[in-house]
């Protein structure tokens, strides 16, 4: 496997009327080609903003940290995403090397343009294909994702397709430009479980066929367990735990990850009580000092927690957690 993307010290703030909000705080991770990384966390943890930052797809009031470095390793050499300035330069990354699938397929297709025209449009922007070639490839992709009668569907509009069908069409569209990295932002959350199982299977097939990397954003740890190779857990803009899917789910190291797992209803033990994590995720305007999780943490109550930000420490080979349980602090207060 070869390295696909390196994200180092990603920090992102937004200038708002209420002050400067920190949305992502010093996040670093990497992904190999052909690897699926699950990005997990509650609403408001910064998962989607992180994903969008990889394409600098954030509003104008976004301020990136000065030491933020995002390197995309393409066949023609590495691209420093942060140095890309205007939309013309960004085209290589947006929809080219990186494709994005959203949660709501109804909201991501234009309602008044047929599915086919939308697929052709983006192919003509990102590839050298003619209109006829683009149409041919689009129909082929629709067929590939399991849409029956693809040439009819090509001419239809988003409202004519069911939810599962729309999400398949979205995947077909995202993959038709042969991206190196696919970001899937809650792609199955709005779907029924039976359809979810079909879509997950489809995505796994396509990864092995095209050898791309996937960042799979979800709050559903069951979906992660079934798809991802490795997992990153996010809380209030910070990564708190990273590791292989087996380690993180079977031997969670961070109290937040353990809390998420305890709150999950499990089918194999229906009498087990559900233990909620007390309280709500704080507003990004009121980020707690020290460990971001200290206001809700049930396990650790050390003198350091509310003062010092814990740094990542190795729990075992390839498994790290940012908690004072495990050691070094980041030196920031």
């Amino acid at each position: 496997m070869s390295r696909l993307i390196d994200v180092e010290n990603l920090t992102l703030q937004f200038d708002t009327d209420e002050g400067r909000i920190t949305a992502i705080d010093n996040v670093s991770f990497n992904l190999e080609a052909g690897e699926i990384m699950g990005l997990v966390g509650e609403s408001g943890s910064g998962k989607s903003v992180t994903a969008k930052s990889l394409m600098k797809l954030n509003p104008r009031n976004a301020i990136y940290g000065t030491d933020t470095k995002i390197t995309l390793h393409l066949d023609d050499g590495p691209i420093d995403v942060m140095s890309l300035q205007n939309n013309a330069e960004m085209k290589v990354v947006r929809g080219g090397a990186i494709s994005l699938i959203f949660q709501e397929p109804m909201a991501s297709f234009a309602p008044a343009i047929s599915i086919g025209d939308q697929m052709v449009e983006q192919l003509m922007i990102h590839t050298d294909f003619s209109k006829a070639q683009s149409k041919e490839l689009s129909i082929e992709m629709l067929d590939r994702v399991g849409i029956s009668d693809p040439s009819t569907r090509f001419g239809q509009y988003a409202f004519e397709l069911s939810g599962g069908m729309r999400q398949r069409a979205m995947i077909a569209m995202a993959l038709s430009t042969k991206p190196k990295l696919l970001i899937a932002d809650e792609p199955t959350t709005a779907l029924d479980v039976t359809i979810q199982a079909q879509v997950i299977d489809l995505m796994k097939d396509l990864v092995s066929e095209f050898g791309m990397g996937i960042i799979f954003i979800t709050h559903d740890l069951g979906v992660i367990a079934q798809t991802a190779d490795k997992v990153a857990v996010m809380y209030l803009g910070r990564l708190v735990e990273q590791g292989t899917v087996r380690d993180v789910i079977r031997r969670p190291a961070h109290p937040y990850t353990r809390g998420l797992l305890a709150a999950l209803p499990k089918l194999d033990d229906i009498d087990a009580p559900l233990t909620p994590i007390p309280g709500d995720i704080p507003s990004p305007l009121e980020r707690p000092p020290g460990c971001v999780y200290n206001t809700r943490c049930q396990e650790v109550d050390g003198p350091q927690c509310a003062v010092k930000i814990p740094g990542f420490a190795q729990v075992r080979e390839g498994h790290t957690a940012a908690c004072h349980l495990y050691g070094p602090t980041e030196g920031k207060t």
């Binding site: 199982a197 299977d201 740890l221 069951g222 367990a225 079934q226 087996r246 789910i249 999950l264 499990k266």
Partner: peptide, 18 residues
């Protein structure tokens, strides 16, 4: 029941797909 994603990463592909 079998379409519910299992929390066990080694349980993959066992689901009976509809």
């Amino acid at each position: 029941l079998s379409a519910i994603p299992s929390l066990d990463p080694d349980d993959r592909g066992k689901a009976q797909k509809l």
